[in-house]
Design a protein around this nucleic acid. Sequence first.
DNA 1: ACTTTTATTGAACATCTGTCTAATAAAAAT
DNA 2: ATTTTTATTAGACAGATGTTCAATAAAAGT
Lengths: 211, 211
Amino acid sequence: MFSNGHLFLNAFNIGVKNLKQDLRIIKTQENLRYALLKLLKSKPLESITIAELCRLAKINRGTFYLHYKDVHGVFKHYVEVIVEDLWRSYEEPYHKTNYKIEKIQADMIKIFHHVKEYQDFYQIVFDERVPMMYYYLLFDTIRSFMRESVDEALQRAEPGMNSDYLISYQTNAILGILIEWHRQSYKTSIQELNKQLFDILSINSPFRKND
Amino acid sequence: MFSNGHLFLNAFNIGVKNLKQDLRIIKTQENLRYALLKLLKSKPLESITIAELCRLAKINRGTFYLHYKDVHGVFKHYVEVIVEDLWRSYEEPYHKTNYKIEKIQADMIKIFHHVKEYQDFYQIVFDERVPMMYYYLLFDTIRSFMRESVDEALQRAEPGMNSDYLISYQTNAILGILIEWHRQSYKTSIQELNKQLFDILSINSPFRKND
DNA sequence: ACTTTTATTGAACATCTGTCTAATAAAAAT
DNA sequence: ATTTTTATTAGACAGATGTTCAATAAAAGT
């Protein structure tokens, strides 16, 4: 349960943007993050208290409040790292070449692999007890990919249209697949998921104009 | 802010299923629900404590735990009532007559009106601080409508296909519009929202197979 | 190395949480 | 109307929360 894997390393690498920050701050935050990961191996996020997190991290509880508001603040950092990883996977070279349905499919397959890789975390992100915050973090990331695809396709089809609703529609549709995957305990294989996606994009929607 | 309106009355009507229940239980729960509504007029859900809720409702704090686990348990009741109202609006007569895109549009327009009517509540449901629980309640409700439409359309187009992913895809796509609406502070008029939806369903998706 | 700046600490505080008692009061059953 | 059942209560408990304080320690700046 809850394999930290390389993410653990990542967690100690985010200093990039905090590079010119006080070493004590970095140490405190790292200790808290690492302690959270440890606790997550044995209990759900919602049952972890600030007090026990600080005890394990050997951080004064008062110090905690200098950095975070609650335990979610600490976990949020991990989600941000993961979502940045998803971000990075989109800046790969072959991405800029082909468009249309193959591109969309390739993009979605990337998302599936990404979620599978960080399954332990996404199990928490989609947990009904956690705040919507994490969902929106993921939503915003996928939405920014979707904007490119949609805006471009729209430029040719329906220029001048406000695309905000369309983009959110498409983005959340994809997240709907991830929700379904989550609810089926990630039992569906990525191959099967791809097939499902292909079928969905093919019949495209039962609301197709000339259905 | 937070007009209770007729929902307040509804909250005291759910005794239908609790009809043969101890009067004291009903009274306790009603008092707590009413107190929550009062508090919500002045502060966000996440900042309401069990202690102050019980003080206002004149209910012993120990009694609270005999009925609910946390404040969300009380609010959940309201969301269930609201979602049941959405449910009811789907069992209207003209619903069974026409199908296809007009039906879908008619259905979605119903959802838009419903959300606008209970805007104060949906502002909380989509708040990033509240648990996913409420989102899933709404998701499941809309999903059950969607199942009908999709399964039927699928029966003709692609019989034998597992429709779970498709239904969740379509359901969450609609919720994507509601999320966008929420993020734009419900400023978009229902007419404009309908137009957006129509455009989306028309170009249907930038992933259309022969785009 | 020395000084300055600032993050961390321990301690205390009122309040909240979750759970448990025995006593009471209010329903339901007869 | 009386008995039985059961929900509510007050009180207490250990632990958690969120905030504040002066004292300390550890960085950064020189």
